[in-house]
């Protein structure tokens, strides 16, 4: 019937997660790093949906609903923090916030 899209979806989820993880380390702008984190979250969402499709239950989708909500809240708070940081240091370079150094 409908082709098995679950396996490819999982592979896609994996690829997006890996790319997101790479981005967290390679980018120096905080906001860009944040966006890569959101990318990773979306990859996880995809995995949930795929498994939900595979098992035929709706729990996966409900979980995605929640992940979505939490991601939104997290984004709001995180960006507020970034704004505060930028006001303090006048830069958005990740490496500039090293006050917890030895």
């Amino acid at each position: 019937m409908s082709p098995d899209l679950v396996q490819p979806a999982l592979v896609l989820s994996l690829a997006l997660f890996a790319i997101g993880a790479l981005g967290v380390f390679l980018r120096r702008n905080i906001i860009t790093v944040f966006m890569c984190v959101e990318l990773m979250l979306n990859a996880v969402n995809l995995a949930f949906i795929a498994f939900s499709r595979a098992r035929g239950t709706l729990d996966g989708q409900v979980l995605v609903f929640f992940v979505l909500t939490v991601a939104a809240a997290e984004a709001a708070v995180g960006l507020a923090i970034i704004i505060a940081l930028q006001r303090g240091r006048d830069t958005l370079d990740v490496d500039a916030f090293d006050l917890l150094k030895w």
Partner: peptide
Amino acid sequence: VAAVLAAALALEMGAVLVGAAPAPVASF
């Protein structure tokens, strides 16, 4: 280092995920 680690992670997760899910239900 980041590249190596990310690749490692991907491979490992691939080993787990691929083939882990059952065939999809007809429709739901």
